[in-house]
Computed example of a mutant assay.
Amino acid sequence: MIIKRFGVFASAVAVAVALAACGASKDENPAIQSTPAKGSLYEGAEKMAGCMRGLGWDITVDRDGGWRSTNGIPVAQKDQYEKDTADCEAKFGYDKPPPPLTQQQAEARYDALVAVGKCVKQLGYDIPPPPSKQKSVESMISSGNPLWDPYQYVVSGTNSSAELDKVFTKCPQP
């Protein structure tokens, strides 16, 4: 199976949600996307992809700002892939935790997620209401966790890459 992570990122916060998207052959390990810890998600994915390509890996950057091995990772190359991933993450500082959000950043992040939630709901997805702004902001400041991510309901509701692309195009990540 290929595991994809879809990150939501703003103010140096990344939230990843795993999705089992499709089957891989018995000779492949899961191709795992990493999520950068700093900078914009898409720019970070481009940096990671460029670094991994420079090491000989065939990498794709998705519209959601994630990256993955285009053709999966052969079992025999798993350790090298993981080492190269760790080296690239260290090169850009993505191996370190992001700095904590300020009150203003956390409030802006909450507002942006609520706006995305409204957009995703308009596309027909069943999105539960977000937690209170106060609880979410407090959680983002203390742990980086917004307690609610509208994309997680999209990811858990479909296995279609085309469907996910549609959502990320119409309701871009904040």
Rank of each mutant, 00 (worst) to 15 (best):
M140D: 00
A112E: 05
G124Y: 01
N159G: 11
L164P: 03
P146Y: 03
M1K: 09
K135Q: 04
R63E: 09
E89N: 07
K135C: 06
R53A: 04
K4D: 07
L41K: 02
P97L: 12
Q152M: 07
K118G: 12
K133F: 07
E89M: 13
G72E: 05
V75Q: 07
K133W: 01
G65M: 00
L147Y: 01
K121D: 05
P131D: 01
F6K: 02
C22V: 12
A115C: 10
K133A: 08
G157P: 11
A45S: 12
G124N: 06
V61D: 15
G72T: 10
D62E: 15
R109E: 06
S25G: 08
G50Y: 01
A24L: 13
S161M: 10
E46P: 01
V13M: 07
Y110N: 04
T35D: 09
M140C: 06
I32Q: 13
W148M: 03
T70M: 10
L19R: 02
G65F: 00
A108N: 09
T70P: 05
R109H: 14
K4A: 06
S161Y: 14
E28Q: 14
T70F: 12
A24H: 03
V154G: 03
C119G: 15
D58E: 12
A16Q: 03
F92E: 06
S136F: 03
A20C: 06
F6L: 05
Y151R: 00
G54M: 13
T158V: 05
A115V: 04
R109Q: 13
Y94P: 06
K118R: 14
P97Q: 14
E43D: 14
K135A: 14
P150I: 08
A16I: 08
D79N: 11
A45P: 02
T60V: 12
Y94F: 09
S139D: 02
S142D: 07
A106C: 08
Q105V: 04
S139V: 04
P129Y: 11
K83I: 14
Y42W: 03
K121A: 15
S34E: 12
A10S: 04
P30F: 11
N71I: 05
D87T: 11
T169N: 07
D111A: 15
R5K: 06
D165W: 05
Q134Y: 03
K83S: 13
K78M: 15
P97Y: 10
D111S: 15
W67P: 00
Q103W: 11
T158Y: 03
A37S: 14
Q80H: 15
Q173V: 07
W57G: 02
V8F: 03
G93R: 06
G56Y: 04
E43S: 15
M140F: 07
K47S: 04
